[in-house]
């Protein structure tokens, strides 16, 4: 068992690009669900809108990357409007089902062969964000970072450092925006909507407008996640935008603590640390023949890790819905509605 590499891989996962993507998506879900009580199960649709917004604008239409990023963000806003208009007046269950459906519609449409000239079909769009690495001030052939206790490798390539720097800056900016807004009267109205829409309406609040703003703003963090994902990978793949991504991000948000400022970020980091740790330990067990093949083969490690996600989500909701940082008294989902 190579514990050094297990720990190193887990820690690296905790600050990886994946953790950034999940943190951004979860910040949005937290605004939706934790603060406004909106059940957006289609955060992945916002991610796809951003990613394909960039991909199509730059690759298919040949625009520069920065234009693509702007178009991607706008695509997320438009999606928010389209999603919100028919659903925000309906019961929460319906919003959940419609958002899932829209996420799936987007995935099916972008991977459709009939649109492959635009979206690349099931192959997606590749190689459109080279200029992102052109802007990289770090040296790609050098390594940055250090070894913890001389053993645990926390060194990164220049390209990684650049991506991580941009990504975590985006996360911090998003956290700042949410923190400012939630402490303002605007945030107070959001929380009142989470508690009781009718009460907020009776006190003169335009519930529909606030829900729409929350949906679009929270969706924009998801859009940002999708754009970052696409640019960092220099590729957009339709099957990376499957329904369950939303649920993984939701698990991260709940893990950290809904209705808290830092919960989704810490949740996303922990989510990836746990996933990576499990995967690495299992692989070591199998490779060292401690775990016999009759019980588990290497190809089954993937499923086991995601079984763990499902289990985590269940157990959290049953035993600790407030997550790590949340205040149990403030978790709206605790009540029968």
């Amino acid at each position: 068992m190579d514990w050094n590499s297990i720990i190193s891989n887990s820690l690296r996962s905790g600050i990886s690009q994946q953790a950034i993507i999940f943190a951004l998506a979860a910040i949005g879900l937290n605004l939706h669900f934790g603060y406004t009580g909106l059940l957006n199960f289609g955060q992945v649709a916002f991610m796809a809108a951003g990613a394909y917004g960039v991909g199509i604008t730059t690759n298919t239409l040949g625009a520069p990357l920065w234009v693509g990023i702007i178009v991607g963000m706008l695509a997320g806003v438009v999606l928010g409007l389209l999603l919100g208009l028919p659903t925000l007046r309906l019961k929460a269950d319906y919003l959940a089902i419609v958002t899932i459906a829209v996420g799936e519609i987007i995935r099916l449409v972008v991977r459709a062969a009939v649109l492959s000239d635009t979206t690349g079909g099931s192959n997606g769009i590749n190689g459109f964000a080279n200029s992102f690495q052109d802007w990289n001030p770090f040296n790609n052939s050098a390594t940055y970072g250090f070894r913890l206790f001389d053993r645990i490798n926390l060194e990164f390539s220049g390209a990684d450092v650049w991506e991580l720097l941009v990504g975590w800056t985006l996360v911090l900016l998003s956290v700042f925006v949410v923190w400012r807004l939630i402490r303002s009267p605007w945030g107070r109205v959001l929380r009142s909507i989470r508690e009781d829409e009718d009460a907020a309406t009776a006190l003169g609040k335009d519930v529909f407008r606030f829900k729409m703003q929350s949906l679009i703003l929270g969706g924009s963090f998801g859009t940002l996640a999708g754009i970052f994902y696409a640019v960092q990978q220099n590729s957009v793949q339709p099957d990376n935008y499957a329904t369950q991504q939303t649920f993984f991000a939701l698990t991260a948000a709940i893990l950290g603590g809904l209705a808290t400022i830092w919960g989704p970020v810490v949740g996303a980091m922990l989510f990836w640390i746990i996933l990576s740790f499990t995967e690495n330990v299992l692989i070591e067990l199998i490779d060292n023949n401690i775990m016999p093949d009759s019980i588990m083969e290497r190809s089954q490690v993937g499923p086991v890790r995601f079984m763990l996600v499902g289990l985590t989500l269940m157990l959290l909701m049953i035993f600790r819905p407030q997550g790590i940082f949340g205040d149990k008294r403030e978790i709206a989902i605790d009540e029968r509605k």
């Binding site: 649920f247 709940i254 995601f306 079984m307 499902g310 989500l313 605790d334 029968r336």
Partner: peptide, 20 residues
């Protein structure tokens, strides 16, 4: 347990079983 919480628990159960 609230209905929304139960819905999310059912999602967790679905993920667990699906990968199982």
């Amino acid at each position: 347990t609230g209905l929304t919480a139960m819905m999310i628990i059912s999602i967790g159960l679905a993920l667990f079983l699906r990968f199982f």
